[in-house]
Every structure is written in C-alpha cells, then in structure tokens.
Nucleic acid binder design. Sequence first.
DNA 1: CCGCCGCTTCGACATCTATCGAACGGTCGC
DNA 2: GCGACCGTTCGATAGATGTCGAAGCGGCGG
Lengths: 107, 107
Amino acid sequence: MREPHHPSCGELELPAILHALSDPARLEIVRRLSTGPECTCGTFDLGLSKATLSHHFRVLREAGLVRTRPEGRKRMLSLRDDDLNDRFPGLLDAILAADGAELQAPA
Amino acid sequence: MREPHHPSCGELELPAILHALSDPARLEIVRRLSTGPECTCGTFDLGLSKATLSHHFRVLREAGLVRTRPEGRKRMLSLRDDDLNDRFPGLLDAILAADGAELQAPA
DNA sequence: CCGCCGCTTCGACATCTATCGAACGGTCGC
DNA sequence: GCGACCGTTCGATAGATGTCGAAGCGGCGG
C-alpha cells in the first residue's frame, strides 16, 4: 500500500485548514483524534458511507491536519498537532476549545 | 435603510465561522477590520466587484463575525470581537495570529 | 492461490459557492 | 424633487463540494 502524499510543514495554508474544519463531519473527526491516540479509518461511525469518509480523510490530509500511515491493510490516522503548533501556535487548541464550548452551550 | 439581520451571540456556530474565514477575501476583510476601527464597505479594494464584496459581507455577517450599522447612505462595518470572545474565547485571536504567521512565512 | 477485508478511486448527481453585470433602493446635495 | 452615490439584490454561470454505489487494489488468512 503506497504512502499517500502529505503537505510539508511549510506548505500548510490557513484558508485550507479552516475550510477543512468547516465541515461538521471533519471537525468531529479531528475532535476524536485529539482525544485519543491514532486509530484506523474504520473506527469512525458518523453515519456516512465509506466513500464519503475516505473523501473527508483526504481533505484533512491534504490540508495537513492529519497523517495517514499504512499498517498492514489498515490505515492509522493521527493528528498533526506537532506540525500545526509549530506553524500556527495555539490555533488548533483554540478551535478545539471552541468546539467544546459549542457543545456545552448549543444554539 | 433597514437594519440587516445579525445572529445573536448564542446562535454563533463554529463550522459557519470557520467556513466564513476559509475564503481568502473574507479572511482579509476580517484581518483589516481587526487592525482598525469600523469602516465603510467601499474602503475594501480587493479586486472584486461590488456585488461580490457585498456577498462576502453577507456571509461574514450571517456567520456572526461582523456587524453592519447603517449610517446615512454608507454602512459601517465592525468586527464582533466582543461577542466572539464571549462565545469562543481566544478563537479569533488565534486565527488572526495564524494569519499573521502565514504572511511572515509564506509557503 | 483464492477470497475476504479495509480502504481508495471512479462516475454520477444534486447542491452550494464565488463571481459578475445589471437593475434596484435608500440617502444626501443641490 | 432630481440626480449622484453607496450598497444590496437579481439572474446567470462556471466551478467546487458532499454524497453515494460500484468497482478497484494491496495485504492477509486459510
């Protein structure tokens, strides 16, 4: 299984990151990744088809938010929080904190 | 000139905010508003038509990022940083800081 | 080595989005 | 009032996006 392309740390672009996180499904994926260790694609049950889920993983990967590592016939997903904090310090934390704040005080 | 609709502080939704800021033109508008006081719509020269600019203002307004106040035949735009910091503390600052970081270290 | 498993890719489709020119609508100056 | 001014809204259009089923593909197990 070939290694998919990941943008380098310097290639991370803010609009792409914000766009990637502007979809509730992708925001949820990132939120889950932030609370635990890396996990496989199949562990996400968001009521979406495999094809759609794979599409969201790709958007997140190409925006530089997640890393995809092949492991046997599975793929391990992990948040690129190190690179993100290096390039945009505090951004990810602020967004995840805002996500939590929204959950606690829904509209 | 009638007062346009603004979402209340509790109606602010994170995905909508992130989506609003995921467009470079809108991000630029917010960045400019953050550095100065309120200003009129016409002060933004981003190489876009009036219609397109008005569209972006609407997206920002409906996401709760900016306030529009009629003043004569002009419209004063201002950032809703008070409401945003109340609902999502630190979020706006982190995004604007990230925007600055991107400008200083372009890809 | 044949088939299952996990995931990606393809093709399709409906919806959304960014963009523009043109038309419209208050507001102010004269 | 009349016309200029500032900005919104309308209608249109090209492109992006989210979604799915079906097909493809590499790896693992029997």
